[in-house]
């Protein structure tokens, strides 16, 4: 486990709560290094088309190594969501070679795909919280799907919701939360199962710059605990404030990532 230093990052909402790395390490204490996997995602000449339409993604070749943190940018309709869908195995390529966690997806049986999906956390732009479930049950869902022990699930979910400042709202409906609070629940749900790969689709789309900055700092904290993070955003100003490499989608093609200097945080 990396990151022995005790970094303190402010919580998304203004207030006294803080994100402690010690908590991150305890809750998400697993990394790809421990599993001996160097390459999390490998795409070779991947193309995607819907039906008989034109290719929305063309000749995508991409290697995502462990310990990576990427921004994925591109204009609306450039194919960011399609690329993320490929990564979280909700879409299969029309052509090309695709490997996730060392598994050749074309050769992976349908029965084995859920095991891979459970290692991926996804934060959706529209949160996709289930309004008929409580906040607690929404966050507990990935653990229950994985068949985790219910007592441990209760402890972990309560701790994580405390951590994101919603410990007092466990049994409320997500509909009663503000947009920012819903986003925190969505993030908690995405990370509760200690994913090896965290994908965030426009997580900063509905928040102001200050909250967006804090959100990316949170993802950095999760990254420091060993999770590979890819954040799709069209907020170029935000991207410039961090030093992480940027994947740029334009005209259905992916441009070579480049490590850039930090613009200032």
């Amino acid at each position: 486990m990396r990151g022995a230093k005790s970094t303190v990052i402010p919580v998304l909402d203004p207030g006294p709560r803080t994100w402690h790395l010690a908590t991150v390490s305890r809750v998400f204490g697993i990394g790809l290094q421990q599993e001996g996997i160097d390459r999390v995602i490998r795409f070779e000449n991947v193309g995607v088309r819907y039906g008989i339409g034109p290719e929305v993604l063309r000749d995508i070749s991409l290697h995502i190594e462990q310990d990576s943190f990427y921004f994925l940018t591109g204009a609306s309709g450039a194919g960011k969501s399609s690329l993320l869908k490929l990564m979280y195995l909700s879409l299969f390529p029309s052509r090309g070679y695709m490997q996730v966690f060392g598994e050749d997806i074309a050769r992976t049986s349908r029965r084995d795909l859920p095991q891979l999906r459970r290692r991926i956390g996804v934060v959706f732009q529209d949160f996709r919280l289930l309004s008929h479930l409580s906040i607690f049950d929404n966050v507990a869902l990935p653990l229950r799907l994985a068949g985790d022990d219910e007592k441990r699930t209760r402890n972990n979910v309560s701790e994580l919701l405390d951590w994101v400042g919603l410990g007092a709202r466990l049994h409320d409906s997500p509909d009663t939360l503000s947009g920012g609070e819903q986003q925190r629940v969505a993030i908690a749900r995405a990370v509760i199962s200690k994913p090896s790969l965290l994908l965030a689709d426009e997580p900063t789309g509905n928040v102001d710059d200050r909250i967006a900055y804090r959100l990316v700092r949170l993802f950095e904290e999760l990254h420091r605990s060993g999770t590979v993070v890819i954040v799709a955003t069209h907020n170029d100003a935000l991207v410039r404030r961090f030093s992480h490499p940027v994947l740029v989608l334009a005209d259905s093609e992916l441009h070579v990532p480049a490590v850039k200097a930090k613009d200032g945080a």
Binding site: R111, P114, L116, L141
Partner: peptide, 15 residues
């Protein structure tokens, strides 16, 4: 919507 979410989270078809 629920089905898609469960699917993405890694629920088996049988589940």
């Amino acid at each position: 919507e629920v089905v898609s979410l469960l699917h993405v989270m890694g629920a088996q078809d049988s589940y």
